[in-house]
Nucleic acid binder design. Structure first.
Lengths: 353, 353
DNA sequence: GTTATTCAAGTTAACGATAACATAGTCCAT
DNA sequence: ATGGACTATGTTATCGTTAACTTGAATAAC
């Protein structure tokens, strides 16, 4: 007979009634505060065990007006760097006694909003947002920040009078990646992965453009590729396809580039496949630089020159900034931090002995 | 002056008072049920907007006795397959109007327990658990299941009279991987990555052993390697080191293996590095098989033969099974499902033209 | 013109826990 | 013996919502 209706879990009062004390006494035993005699304590604990009592967090948090829980919204968990971020955040939080709930929002504004709402609905004490920004989502995030919920954003734009932000210096990363190629003597340098969103928002592209201009290299629009049309459905590993297609397009140009800077490592990976397929050599025929230094980058053949952003540090700082807001209980002025990236030179741009 | 104390958010009653109606009327407007005149509705909505009212989910859920939220506990989110699982779960749930909160528990039983507790404390409607099993964690999970919370476990052992489980057929996957090597003529076949936990629990190893025995190949303990000592701190990409060390040990044997089956793709990756470093060729000198078919496997050189487990399907099924339990509201007998794996043959075992 | 029916609210009592306050006994010091 | 400090409880009110019930119009039905 497996059709037993699930019995309702025991409450504090149930336990209290069984032992013959007031609910408050049981509460004291559970939470280990206030005075309780050893004798009573034992009787209560016995009943708690026997009745399989678990306290109701909803009720508790409602009364306490806090949850000791923080939410993290990430798009694209397929991306190893989201993963690293999440881990760093969790570690920092758990150290301070906070729990972390992660919500995934892969693609749409609708999912962003639903993630925000479900977290706020659970009265989390604060939120860290690391999704790609989009209009409707930002609007809701604004409301949430307005309503006094502590918010920190990571790796994306967002302006609000009480929201901290933290990000890698994507512009400079893009600049250095491109400069590295220029230093190696390249003049025709392509960019793969532009144009999903407002182009001026893509700092890596801006860095690329700036590096070219700085070195007096004329910008050739034909060398800048990406999916102009499809606005925002490029999660994780799927950007690989963009790299592949983009590189194919670049290779078919009358005068093809001798080097390419890809928006991220996955895109670079796709580009590598396309180059290999065309029977060309990396880096002799085409040098390639990626971005993010995902674990993949070390294991491609040739290994991938890429720009590492300090994900762990970003996660730590995000958590710390959020906790500061939570603890202060006040509305503080926003703080924005930008962290330096590091160029990691490997075989996809330079031949090792 | 940024030292404004955070003002308390408006409540239903606040809004009601402002408009001059009963709280219940405001509740009706918010939830869109019951009768409310168009006139009142507009006045309420206006006040809601003006006061930046957000309903308190804790109070709501406490009253409604449900949260429409499901928890997922994963260890090791660095692993792409956890990621795929999480995504599949989320998709299936969101389709049914449920939210997903993900908790990470990287290593210790303590973290497992704290993840379980934080989810249960928020009165989630059910939990999916996909961490590696460990004694204390299982004990708490047992209590949770006992207390009537719907639970489904994925990819791990767990016995409870009302907990469903779902898993890939790791034994058979291990068997097929090994048989593939045997079919190719290999007789000295190593295993890398044994021994973190109770060895009989590692189904992939069991499959390996069984394949050897089935084909009359004697088992040579020296060919089975792993970290016997360190029990359970091998998150994600770090198993790569185990692969590297394990392979080095195997290569230094008087008569080294001609093929190796690695516990997972990361381990295989480490093994590949060690082989390359020793100046040997894959697969000519050493053939290598991994497990999981992570995105990496396609991009190693040579590309990696591996066993794919249907992560997406596991996620979908887990979510569906859990929802069935939640919806039924009864205590149902446990169901256990095992899904077939698929051997993906690539260049690390077979030379392509 | 009386009785149903529908609409538009309001009232009450939880949901389960806890902060804050109140009570009462014991023990010790002055 | 009177007051204060400490211990061990109990009582009350409340956190913010909503289910369930009630009230009172307005409209429709006979």
């Amino acid at each position: 007979m497996s059709q037993n209706i699930r019995r309702k879990p025991a409450t504090l009062s149930d336990v209290a009634a069984k032992v013959g004390v007031a609910p408050m006494t049981v509460s004291r035993v559970i939470n280990g505060n206030g005075y309780v005699s050893e004798e009573t304590r034992e009787k209560v604990l016995e009943a708690v065990k026997k009745m399989n009592y678990r306290r109701n967090g909803l009720a508790r948090n409602l009364k306490r007006q806090r949850t000791d829980t923080v939410g993290l919204v990430i798009g694209d968990i397929s991306n190893p760097f989201s993963t690293e971020l999440a881990n760093a955040v969790r570690e920092t939080l758990s150290f301070k006694g906070y729990n972390l709930f992660i919500c995934i929002s892969e693609q749409s504004a609708k999912e962003d909003i639903s993630a925000f709402d479900s977290l706020v609905d659970h009265n989390i004490d604060g939120v860290i947002v690391a999704t790609r920004s989009n209009e409707e989502g930002d609007e809701r995030l604004n409301e949430i920040a307005d309503s006094g919920v502590p918010v920190v954003v990571v790796g994306r734009d967002f302006k609000h009078e009480s929201v901290d932000s933290i990000s890698a210096d994507n512009f400079n990363g893009g600049f250095e990646a491109t400069q590295h190629l220029i230093d190696l003597g390249h003049r025709r340098i392509g960019f793969i992965g532009a144009g999903f969103e407002n182009r001026s928002r893509l700092k890596r592209l801006q860095g690329y453009l700036s590096a070219l201009t700085t070195h007096g290299i004329e910008i050739d629009e034909r060398l800048i590729t990406g999916r102009r049309g499809s606005s925002n459905e490029t999660p994780g590993y799927s950007t690989e396809a963009i790299g592949y297609e983009g590189m194919k397009r670049l290779l078919s140009l009358p005068s093809r580039p001798t080097a390419v800077f890809a928006r991220n490592d996955f895109t670079a990976l796709g580009a590598i496949s396309a180059v290999k397929e065309a029977g060309l050599l990396i880096p002799q025929d085409i040098a390639i630089v990626g971005f993010d230094d995902t674990p993949l980058a070390l294991h491609t053949t040739p290994s991938l020159t890429t720009v590492r952003q300090p994900m762990k540090l970003q996660g730590q700082l995000a958590a710390e900034m959020l906790l500061r807001r939570i603890d202060s209980g006040t509305v503080m002025a926003p703080e924005a931090r930008t962290l330096e990236c590091e160029l990691i030179i490997r075989e996809s741009t330079v031949i090792r002995d």
